[in-house]
Simulated assay, not measured.
Amino acid sequence: MTWLAAQPYYKVQREVSGLEQKTVVHDRTMYLYPDKIATERRQFPIGDVFDMSYRKMGGEGGMLYFHTKQGVYSYMVKDDPRNFIGAFKELVAGK
């Protein structure tokens, strides 16, 4: 199945080994399909997502929020997700 839009996001993980603490950044991509949104670990059926919003944080990037039947999920993004949100809103408006 071909995706309609893609949005890079990242996850920050702290690893502690012995006396050392290390921060690891995992770059990932979420995809908007006609019937779902897929991230690295989750899939959201389009019917379960009510809305998306974005809040800019600091100098660059911010948080992309999915408002779903199961609650609000947040994803850290470096790039403005305006196109991804627009593609989602266009998709649900057509249903």
Rank of each mutant, 00 (worst) to 15 (best):
R42Y: 10
A38W: 00
I37R: 00
Y33G: 03
E15G: 01
P34K: 03
Q13W: 05
V12E: 15
P8G: 09
Y75R: 00
W3E: 12
Y75M: 02
R55S: 06
P34D: 14
P8D: 12
E15F: 01
L19P: 02
Y33P: 00
E90C: 07
F50Y: 15
R55Y: 03
L4Q: 14
F66G: 09
L91Y: 02
M76W: 02
G62W: 00
Q21C: 10
T39C: 06
E60P: 00
K89E: 15
G61R: 04
M63R: 09
L4T: 15
L19Y: 04
Y9L: 11
M63K: 11
G18D: 13
F84M: 07
G94T: 02
G61F: 09
M30Y: 04
M76R: 04
R42M: 14
N83A: 13
E40Y: 10
K69R: 12
S53H: 08
T68W: 09
Y73G: 09
R42E: 13
Q7M: 08
K78P: 01
F88K: 00
G62C: 01
R41I: 03
G18V: 07
Q13E: 15
Q21A: 13
V16W: 01
R55V: 01
A38S: 09
T68I: 09
V77E: 05
Y31N: 08
R42F: 12
S53I: 03
S17Y: 04
I37T: 04
E15Y: 00
P81I: 02
A93F: 10
A87W: 05
V77L: 05
K22Q: 12
G71T: 03
T2I: 05
S53Y: 04
T23F: 07
V49N: 06
F66M: 12
E60V: 08
G18H: 08
F88N: 01
D48N: 10
R41E: 06
R28S: 07
V25T: 14
P8F: 08
R28F: 03
Q7A: 03
K11C: 11
R82P: 05
K22S: 14
V49Y: 08
F84K: 01
T23V: 13
K95C: 14
A93W: 03
